[in-house]
């Protein structure tokens, strides 16, 4: 079984990114980059499926405007067998990313292609479905449970207050949600092995941009916090303010 995992390099969620001097992008200075947290669930799921099958290959694919290979190396350290890095594309234009990924994935011929349900920088939720469209494959997004039964992928997908059950025929695409599994940490042995694993670097062909970012800025500051009082004695005043001043209840 060949499993492909698509991963993205994103700013660490512990930091508050700043706007670059151009006023329409994220300032890369001082940012610590990590594997998109949802992609870690995808990597873990691929590794578990390969381990369960006892055979197969896990291929990590990443599109990175800077051609930075650090997160693919980390994925290799977690146990991914080989990496393909596409140098180019854009941090925020998911349609471009999807075309680049589809171009690589059609040659990988994976039985299952796994994604994180969203990248936590662009927050667009669009790349997995766009890749499915380009490759003509079934897909399930925001999946919290995945079971491979022969040539069927049985998926539970999170929706408002419920879950949808989908049965896709493989090859197919699944985007992963927290709760699917508990991602492993790379072992020391894995980190050493990762240095010798194959990592192919491709130059991205030019792709037509679909969107333009005109401006980026932090949200307007909230009014300074106000303490109503201490302990239970403050409760009647809080309720009064919520009713009479804020008028929200």
């Amino acid at each position: 079984m060949i499993l492909a995992v698509c991963i993205k390099r994103v700013p660490d969620t512990n930091a508050r990114p700043q706007v670059a001097p151009d006023g329409k992008s994220i300032n890369p200075q001082g940012i610590e980059w990590v594997i998109n947290p949802y992609d870690e669930f995808a990597i873990e799921e691929a590794l578990r499926l390969k381990e369960k099958a006892g055979t197969g290959e896990v291929v990590g694919v990443s599109v990175d405007p800077d051609g930075n290979e650090s997160i693919l190396r980390k994925a290799l350290a977690m146990g991914v067998d080989r990496g393909i890095l596409v140098k180019g594309g854009s941090m925020f234009d998911g349609a471009v990313t999807a075309e680049l990924l589809a171009g690589v994935l059609k040659n990988v011929k994976a039985d299952l292609i796994l994604f994180g349900k969203q990248a936590v920088d662009s927050d667009s939720y669009q790349v997995p479905s766009l890749v499915a469209h380009h490759l003509g494959l079934p897909r399930a997004n925001v999946v919290t449970k995945l079971e491979i039964q022969g040539t069927k992928a049985v998926c539970r997908r999170q929706i408002e207050g419920n879950e949808e059950l989908l049965e896709l025929s493989t090859p197919c695409i699944v985007s992963c949600q927290k709760g699917l599994n508990e991602p492993r940490y790379p072992s020391l042995k894995g980190i050493m092995a990762a240095k010798k694993k194959p990592l192919e670097v491709l130059e991205a062909p030019p792709i037509e941009a679909r969107i333009e970012i005109l401006k980026m800025e932090p949200p307007p500051p909230r009014p300074p916090g106000r303490i109503v009082g201490k302990g239970r004695e403050a409760v009647p005043e809080l309720v009064r303010l919520l009713r009479e001043e804020a008028k929200v209840i």
Partner: peptide, 20 residues
């Protein structure tokens, strides 16, 4: 038609226009 949307879960907001 410009869409204003959160990125990085709302740590920043981006104004987006379509080229197509």
């Amino acid at each position: 038609l410009i869409g204003r949307r959160p990125v990085c879960a709302g740590k920043l907001f981006a104004d987006v226009a379509f080229k197509k």
